[in-house]
Simulated assay, not measured.
Amino acid sequence: MNDRWLWTFPVVGAFLIAIALVLQNHRWNEEERMVRTTGSVVALMGRGCPLVEFFPRPGERITFTGEVCSRPGYAEGDTVELFYDPLEPQHAHIDSFLQNWFISLILGAIGLFFTLIGLALLIPEALVDSRRKRLKRKGQAVQAQFVEIRRNPFSTFNNVPAWQLVCQWCNPSTGEVHLFYSEDLWFDPQPFIGNEFLQVMVDPNDPRRYSVDTSFLPRLAD
């Protein structure tokens, strides 16, 4: 799977979280210059959107609709706390947790979800890459006999399981046979397998730590 494509998830997630923070910071700064007062719910619009009435000055009646609609929610006759701009009284909003935080929390939650998905995909890739580089420096190169190409049911993308190369090597010092599995491949490598043996970098102290060399395979297009 292309690493650059995987970065889309945390980038989009960070962007949504940033928007949520900007919106919430704007709301806080806005309220610093606004006036707090009370109003009354005079009607419910659509799916429970409260129509609020208040009087910023004697004889001046202002109505506005709440930003978040919900059922159950407000009822006609309810008294609500609100903020309004003294220079533009029609610019007002209800002072409640739902009205103040709903949009920011939704954007932030979606952003966090995308970020976690991205990290869940990128961290294993990073660990595999780190192990590969470490074994390239300190590992022992062995020639393992190619056995088969298998599908990995535990690693899927769009419900399509990844491919893996399977090979085996008999450790001459112990007489034990070790099975090695390549990293996940997102295209069918069968047409590109021309060798009976594959190079595997093995940790001399622990053969369970290894990296199957797949550099001879073509790269998947972006």
Rank of each mutant, 00 (worst) to 15 (best):
residue 90 Q to K: 13
residue 22 V to F: 13
residue 49 C to F: 08
residue 73 G to Q: 08
residue 219 R to Y: 06
residue 189 P to C: 08
residue 106 I to N: 03
residue 163 W to Y: 15
residue 82 L to P: 07
residue 104 S to M: 05
residue 113 F to L: 10
residue 64 F to L: 03
residue 26 H to R: 14
residue 129 D to L: 13
residue 162 A to I: 03
residue 72 P to R: 00
residue 195 N to P: 06
residue 28 W to C: 00
residue 205 N to Y: 12
residue 205 N to F: 15
residue 107 L to C: 04
residue 202 V to M: 06
residue 92 A to V: 05
residue 197 F to R: 11
residue 104 S to A: 14
residue 14 A to I: 04
residue 53 E to D: 03
residue 30 E to P: 00
residue 50 P to R: 06
residue 163 W to R: 10
residue 118 G to N: 06
residue 3 D to A: 14
residue 133 K to G: 01
residue 166 V to L: 01
residue 172 P to I: 07
residue 57 R to I: 08
residue 183 E to Y: 04
residue 44 L to E: 07
residue 172 P to K: 01
residue 46 G to T: 07
residue 148 E to V: 02
residue 88 E to P: 00
residue 86 P to C: 01
residue 58 P to F: 03
residue 66 G to E: 02
residue 51 L to M: 10
residue 143 Q to K: 14
residue 71 R to A: 05
residue 146 F to D: 07
residue 155 S to M: 12
residue 79 T to K: 14
residue 117 I to Q: 05
residue 69 C to I: 12
residue 169 W to R: 09
residue 212 V to H: 06
residue 50 P to D: 11
residue 180 F to A: 09
residue 31 E to Y: 09
residue 100 N to Y: 01
residue 152 N to L: 04
residue 29 N to G: 07
residue 9 F to I: 03
residue 41 V to Y: 01
residue 46 G to P: 11
residue 7 W to P: 07
residue 187 F to W: 05
residue 85 D to V: 02
residue 205 N to S: 15
residue 63 T to K: 04
residue 59 G to M: 12
residue 131 R to N: 01
residue 129 D to G: 14
residue 128 V to S: 11
residue 199 Q to N: 14
residue 152 N to Q: 07
residue 201 M to H: 00
residue 160 V to S: 12
residue 68 V to D: 06
residue 13 G to M: 09
residue 198 L to E: 00
residue 213 D to I: 05
residue 90 Q to Y: 10
residue 145 Q to T: 11
residue 60 E to I: 10
residue 191 P to R: 01
residue 87 L to T: 05
residue 179 L to V: 15
residue 138 K to Q: 12
residue 121 L to M: 14
residue 203 D to Y: 08
residue 170 C to T: 15
residue 155 S to Q: 08
residue 120 A to F: 02
residue 75 A to S: 07
residue 22 V to E: 02
residue 121 L to Y: 11
residue 33 R to I: 04
residue 213 D to H: 02
residue 168 Q to I: 08
residue 163 W to T: 05
residue 57 R to D: 12
residue 144 A to K: 10
residue 35 V to Q: 05
residue 155 S to F: 13
residue 159 N to F: 05
residue 7 W to L: 15
residue 162 A to H: 02
residue 215 S to R: 09
residue 5 W to G: 10
residue 102 F to E: 02
residue 204 P to L: 04
residue 99 Q to R: 07
residue 167 C to P: 08
residue 170 C to Q: 14
residue 22 V to C: 00
residue 222 D to R: 09
residue 29 N to W: 10
residue 139 G to A: 06
residue 47 R to A: 12
residue 121 L to P: 04
